[in-house]
C-alpha cells in the first residue's frame, strides 16, 4: 500500500517538477510547484512527519507560493497591460486537483496507522514531540530564526521602498 501511494505521488511530483522547469509561463511554473509541494506533503505524512506535512502546505503552498504569485502578478501587470487570461479551464481543473490533494492529505492523516513504516512509535513526529525538541535541545536556533525572519522582513521592505523616496 505504501509502495503504491509512493509510486503515484512520486511520479506526480517528478511530472509536476518537470512541468515547472519546462512551462513557458511563470504562472504555470508556480502552480506546478504548488502541486509538487502537495505531493511532498503527502510523502512527509507517509513517513509520520505529520507536523512537517502540515507546515509544508501552510508555509510553502500557502505563504511562499502566494508571495511568488503576487510578484508575478505585479510584474505581468506592468509588462503587458490588459493581457487577458484564456486558461480558465486549466485554472478550474487545477483548483479541482488541489482540492482533491487536500482531501487525500487529510484523509491520509486521519487514517494513518500508528507506525506506517514499521519503525515509528506512536509519538514520533507529532506536534508535541517536535515542539518539545524545538523548545529544549534546539531552543537557540529556534530563537535565532525569529531574528532571521525579522531581518528578512526589514530587508524586503528596505529593498522595495528604496526607490520610492
Amino acid at each position: 500500500m505504501e509502495m503504491a501511494i509512493f509510486l503515484v505521488v512520486g511520479a506526480l511530483s517528478i511530472g509536476f517538477s518537470l512541468a515547472m522547469i519546462l512551462a513557458p509561463k511563470p504562472v504555470t511554473s508556480a502552480m506546478s510547484l504548488v502541486a509538487v509541494m502537495f505531493c511532498l506533503a503527502v510523502l512527509f505524512a507517509m513517513q509520520s512527519a505529520h507536523l512537517i506535512a502540515i507546515l509544508q502546505i501552510l508555509v510553502y503552498a500557502g505563504a511562499i507560493m502566494v508571495l511568488f504569485l503576487f510578484v508575478i502578478m505585479l510584474l505581468n501587470l506592468r509588462e503587458k497591460e490588459g493581457a487577458e487570461s484564456h486558461t480558465k479551464g486549466y485554472a478550474q481543473m487545477f483548483g479541482g486537483a488541489m482540492a482533491l490533494a487536500i482531501l487525500v492529505v487529510v484523509v491520509g492523516l486521519t487514517h494513518m496507522p500508528a507506525s506506517p513504516a514499521g519503525l515509528s512509535s506512536d509519538r514520533f513526529g507529532t506536534t508535541a514531540e517536535v515542539g518539545r525538541l524545538l523548545f529544549t535541545k534546539y531552543i537557540l536556533p529556534f530563537e535565532i530564526t525569529s531574528v532571521l525572519l525579522l531581518a528578512a522582513l526589514v530587508g524586503a521592505v528596505a529593498l522595495v521602498k528604496i526607490r520610492m523616496r
Partner: peptide, 26 residues
C-alpha cells in the same frame, strides 16, 4: 526527530529567502 527540527529551520530560511529574493526581483 532532529531531522524534523532541521526541516522546520529550512522552511523558515526558505520563507526569508523568498521574501528577500522577490524584493530583489521587484
Amino acid at each position: 526527530m532532529t531531522g524534523h527540527a532541521f526541516v522546520f529551520m529550512v522552511i523558515a530560511v526558505a520563507a526569508a529567502e523568498a521574501a528577500v529574493g522577490l524584493a530583489v526581483v521587484l
